[in-house]
Structures are given as structure tokens and as C-alpha cells.
Design a binder for these strands. Structure first.
Lengths: 119, 119
DNA sequence: TATTGTTATACTCTATAACTATA
DNA sequence: TATAGTTATAGAGTATAACAATA
């Protein structure tokens, strides 16, 4: 599903961070590096790339001068929405090849797989 | 599971190629790039890294002078076997947290997921 | 002429260590 | 002193384009 994207070759990692800042308000560099499970320097670099592409902006936190809040630009929000639309469409198409019984089997396995993935 | 590895920090990609050459005889650079779904130059680079680490060797094909066959060294085979052992142990441990009913649900979902992944 | 591999080049992601600025 | 972010540096993976060697 991650391969479903909008033309314009924004890499996967950068796209994932875009989804993060669109879906959550006021994320800092540190919060983003926790979310994506990378180190702060790595996230810093990725955010730089997003800002250079005009997809995100940095702004200082009002309450803590050390923190930096990353926000999506209009262009960034548009990219996320288009990508989401494409992914939902792809997923729906995949799901249409699954019978009701198969769907039930997947539903049954889903929470077990999630538990194993989180452990 | 892929995170389960032997100490010595051989990266994931390189380890995956090692499993490829241990599990299949006489693989060429081209065959390996197909197997790992990367371009030949990329695979060439990875094989170079393996040779530098002493895990694999290159040798010319007897029947086609253009082809290069990649083979695991003793050290390479040892690394693969130890890694496999660790991964099997990890997997068994995970499986031990799954009840018989849950196991049945996973077994039912498995072929469906495989079909979707291949499509 | 087509195929196989290689080299050159460039971009992305990742990490650790060391540094700056703020709390 | 501790925390948030940044810069410096280095290793790894990926791709495309251009090239050499062989079929």
C-alpha cells in the first residue's frame, strides 16, 4: 500500500512524516522522531527535506523556546489527501477480490497479528 | 523477525542476499537482483560489500563468460546458519504465546494474505 | 546486435558524537 | 545540570546513465 503515491516522487519516509503532522497537531522534532522510531538528527534531516520541498514549515513553540513545531503547508496537506485517496482506492480494490468467508478469516487474524507485532 | 541477527552488524540487505546464495546454488548477479527486486548495479554493490566482509566470493560461469556466480564462504554459511537458528528460536517463542484457536485463525488467514501480497 | 556486469554519479536514510540554545 | 534541536561525519541502499566484455 505504501507504494501507492501521488506523482512527484516524494520518498516514503518523507510521506510518512507528512501523514504524521497532518494527523496530529503540534508535533515537535522529538515527538516525530519517537513516532517514526528514528533518532532526532535523522528526523531533523527529513524535516529539512520537507521544508525544502515546500510541504512543511518549522515554527517555535510558544511555551518552550527549545522546541520546534512542524506543520504541513497547504501544498503538504493536499499531497497527503491525494495520497490517502489513492491508498484507500487501492485497498478497496484489493478487498474486492476477497470473499465474505475470506474477509471473516482476515478479521479474525487481525487482532492476533497486531498483538504479535506490538510485542 | 528480520531484526533477529547475529552480533557483528551485517546489515539486513546483505544478510538477505546471504540467505539467497546459501539457499540456491549458482546464483548470478542478475539472478540475485531479480530475487531481491533491485537493479543490477545495486546488487553489484551489495555483493562487493559481502566479498569485502569475507562472506561471499565471485567466480566466473563456466558456460558464459559474462556471468558471475556468487557463492557463500564457510564464514558466510556459518553466519546464515547462526542467524537462522536465532530467527527460528524467536519465532517459536512468539508462537508459544498463541493459543490453539488463535493458531487456527492465523493458519486460515495465511494463504489469503499470501495471495494478496503476490497480487 | 543483445545481454551481463561494472563504473560513475547522485540522492535518501540511518546512526553516533559533539555542539548550541534554552529550561 | 538536563533537555531539544542542530551540525558534522560516516556507512549503507537505491536508482539511472554510460561503458566494457562476451554471446
Amino acid at each position: 500500500m505504501r507504494l501507492e503515491r501521488v506523482d512527484g516522487d516524494v520518498p516514503d519516509t518523507q510521506l510518512s512524516v507528512m501523514f504524521g503532522i497532518v494527523n496530529n497537531e503540534g508535533l515537535t522534532i522529538g515527538a516525530l522522531s519517537d513516532l517514526e522510531r528514528v533518532t532526532p538528527p535523522s528526523m531533523n534531516r527529513t524535516v529539512n527535506a520537507l521544508v525544502e520541498r515546500g510541504l512543511a514549515t518549522r515554527s517555535g513553540s510558544p511555551d518552550d523556546g527549545r522546541k520546534v513545531i512542524v506543520t504541513a503547508t497547504d501544498s503538504g496537506m493536499q499531497l497527503v489527501e491525494e495520497t490517502r485517496r489513492k491508498r484507500v482506492a487501492w485497498f478497496s480494490k484489493q478487498l474486492s477480490t476477497v470473499s465474505a468467508d475470506e474477509r471473516a478469516a482476515l478479521d479474525a487474524a487481525s487482532p492476533i497479528l497486531r498483538r504479535l507485532a506490538d510485542s
